[in-house]
């Protein structure tokens, strides 16, 4: 065991992925000597050489186009997009190419060896273009897996699993927690399963569901609720696609209430998809409407970021509203 922050855990996972398979290649803007603007790829070029860890020109569509070809060729491509806000020039390559490679060729070719890492979310005073949470756009595209870790231990195990999963994965890293989240992380190689949610705390009155950086305000709100005698079951979804319907359903069948929270805007957010599925499966067991605590339907603000984000107080209020419905 070692104490690592989330960045060190990512860096450690990449190191192990490259050490355990010499077909693994990491690249993106500034990931070479500099080790990435957040330093997630520190020392990898030093250790594995410029052929396997390198800077690319500043062109996201090129990075993912290149990554698709490299993965189709048989290498394990781990591409970094510097901020999730800048992934959109590569949207065509991800949505029309990565996601459809296997299907359209009848499995003659695939890019299952592709993992796209990208920091997402607010909390660093990043304004419109260094704060977005675009997971729902990608969740709407069959063929991709979408993974979001909440802490260093999870980040390492989920990233190693993503890199080795035989499907293209978009791996969203909560950049607010890069240095803020510190925890015990085994130094050896391990994987955490994709598509499996994790029940952090069992409870009987209400189910609270989120992923990534949003787990922190969710747990804080749960503490406040517990003080008022409300027993909360807390679930980290971990994988957005394919999401663990069974775990969430079983929990809501037990508690009869569900609050889902994400930083992304409300309309078209992934909470809507979860709510629709859960009301279908738990309709007669629900004690109150499923609540969504999310960002507003605006671009991500700067000066008023604190007001915008779905913080623990907003979640706490949603819990009480659900309980007293």
């Amino acid at each position: 065991m070692a104490k690592m922050n989330l960045l060190q855990a990512i860096n450690n996972a990449l190191d192990l992925a490259m050490a355990s398979n010499d077909k693994t290649v990491c690249f993106g803007e500034d990931v070479g000597v500099f080790g990435g603007v957040f330093r997630a790829t520190s020392h990898l070029q030093e250790k594995y050489g410029r052929a396997r860890c390198f800077n690319t020109p500043l062109v996201e569509q090129g990075i993912i186009g290149f990554a698709n070809g490299l993965a189709a060729q048989g290498h394990v491509a781990v591409a970094e997009i510097q901020f999730a806000d800048y992934i959109f020039p590569a949207f065509d390559q991800i949505v029309n190419e990565s996601a459809k490679y296997r299907y359209r060729s009848g499995s003659l070719f695939d890019v299952g060896n592709l993992t796209i890492r990208t920091p997402y979310g607010g909390g660093i005073a990043g304004g419109l273009y260094h704060s977005q949470s675009p997971e729902a756009y990608f969740a709407h595209t069959p063929g991709l897996k979408i993974v979001v870790p909440r802490n260093p231990y999870e980040a390492k195990g989920l990233l190693l699993a993503s890199i080795r999963d035989p499907n293209p994965v978009v791996f969203f890293e909560p950049k607010r927690l890069y240095r803020a989240s510190v925890g015990d992380v085994p130094e050896e190689d391990y994987e955490l399963p994709l598509g499996k949610a994790s029940v952090l705390k069992e409870g009987t009155d209400i189910t609270l569901l989120a992923w990534g950086a949003q787990m922190e305000p969710l747990e804080k709100a749960a503490e406040m609720a517990e003080k008022e005698g409300i027993s909360c079951e807390i679930i980290d979804l971990r994988t957005i696609v394919p999401w663990d319907i069974e775990t969430v359903t079983n929990s809501v069948l037990k508690t009869g209430r569900l609050v889902i929270s994400h930083e992304a805007p409300l309309t078209g957010g992934f909470a809507g998809e979860i709510a629709a599925t859960i009301q279908e499966r738990c309709f007669l067991y629900l004690e109150s409407p499923i609540a969504r605590v999310t960002g507003l339907d605006t671009p991500f603000p700067l000066a008023l970021e604190k007001e915008y984000v779905p913080d623990h107080l907003k979640i706490f209020e949603a819990i009480k509203h659900s309980i007293h419905f």
């Binding site: 090129g62 186009g65 290149f66 990554a67 070809g69 490299l70 060729q73």
Partner: peptide
């Protein structure tokens, strides 16, 4: 490689494929 309708997507993929070679 199986043909894909979107135009030009194959061009940067060819760069990546050749890098792998």
């Amino acid at each position: 490689m199986t043909i894909s309708s979107p135009l030009a997507t194959q061009i940067p993929q060819a760069t990546g494929y050749a890098y792998g070679q």
